Amino acid sequence: MRRAAPHALAVVALLVAVLGVVVSRDRPGIAGTAVAGTSAPTVTTATAPATTTGSATTTPPATTPPTTTKASPVGAPLAGRIQPGVVRTGVATFYDSDGGGACSYDPGPDPLTVAMNAADYGNAAACGAYVQVNAAGKSITVKVTNLCPAPCKPGQLDLGAEAFAQLAPPVQGEIPVTWTLVSPPTRKSIAIRYKTGSSQWWCGIQVLDHRNPVARLEVQVNGQWRQLPRAEYNYFLAENGAGCGGSIAVTDIYGERLVVPALPVRADIVQSTTLQFSAH
């Protein structure tokens, strides 16, 4: 079993980073120049989204159905280190996971989660990705929710304890595995959340419940699309307030681009949409 200490250090570092953003201080390595977005093979425009506060959901009246232009993307041109269809080898360890961690997701009941090694985490590019893990004839699919810092090696997965137990007895501590990116079935639609402290002057935008890894997020500013930089804690930042509260375009690694109509800037509120990326 891996010691919890490295994760504790990672969480402390994460809290320091988040606090720094909340008070609107510049953070090295995150600020960047926004660039104009480009077109993608698939564009879907959502109807007006529902808003979720706790367990209550309010769905607005139906509007014009979404318009979708479909094309078959070739490969995954926007993928980072984790390429679909590429089988990776490594080892799996485990830790006590509650589904929270460096990706800034809320703790949840799903025990099938994994912390990704730093090399493959890719500045949060792996957050929300699903990977199929195989070991000794057994297989599970887990969601990336956290970062596994050194001494985790490239290719290593630090599984939630319950996920590890489905592959091998926990007494083994570490097992050889192969793993690959997958695009699983889901009944969920993507959701958007503005970060604590967000306003018209500064905002952080997070995408939730996406089937495929998110490669890019753009906001509409004066009729133009501008790409936002991604923080290592999995929020896309508009540090000068540009686009906060406007339309949002989310693109996955396959180039499918979903356009979400303007949402109110409501910090820490999960706002549902009617959209989801295609399965691959």
Rank of each mutant, 00 (worst) to 15 (best):
C127I: 06
L263Y: 12
T178P: 07
P66R: 05
A267Y: 05
A191V: 10
R81Q: 09
G255S: 03
G128H: 10
H210C: 12
G241P: 05
Q166G: 11
P109C: 06
V207M: 14
A76G: 14
V86Y: 14
V182W: 00
P77Y: 11
G54E: 06
V23Y: 04
W225H: 08
Y105N: 10
V91E: 12
P176I: 04
T52A: 14
A119R: 09
Q220F: 12
V270F: 10
Q227E: 15
V114Q: 00
N222D: 15
L9Y: 04
G241M: 05
C244M: 08
C148G: 08
N222I: 04
T38F: 04
G54Y: 03
I253F: 11
I30A: 11
G20F: 07
A4T: 01
A165T: 13
S39P: 01
A125H: 08
D252K: 09
F164T: 05
G122C: 00
A10D: 04
C148T: 09
G204Y: 08
G241V: 05
T145F: 08
P73L: 04
P84A: 12
V11S: 07
V91A: 15
G245P: 00
G100C: 15
D252P: 10
N123G: 04
F94G: 10
D98E: 12
L263V: 02
A4E: 09
A5Q: 11
A215T: 09
Q132N: 05
R226F: 12
T141D: 05
V207T: 14
D209C: 09
G255W: 01
P49S: 03
A119N: 03
T113I: 00
S247V: 01
G32Y: 07
R25A: 14
A231G: 13
F236C: 07
V221P: 11
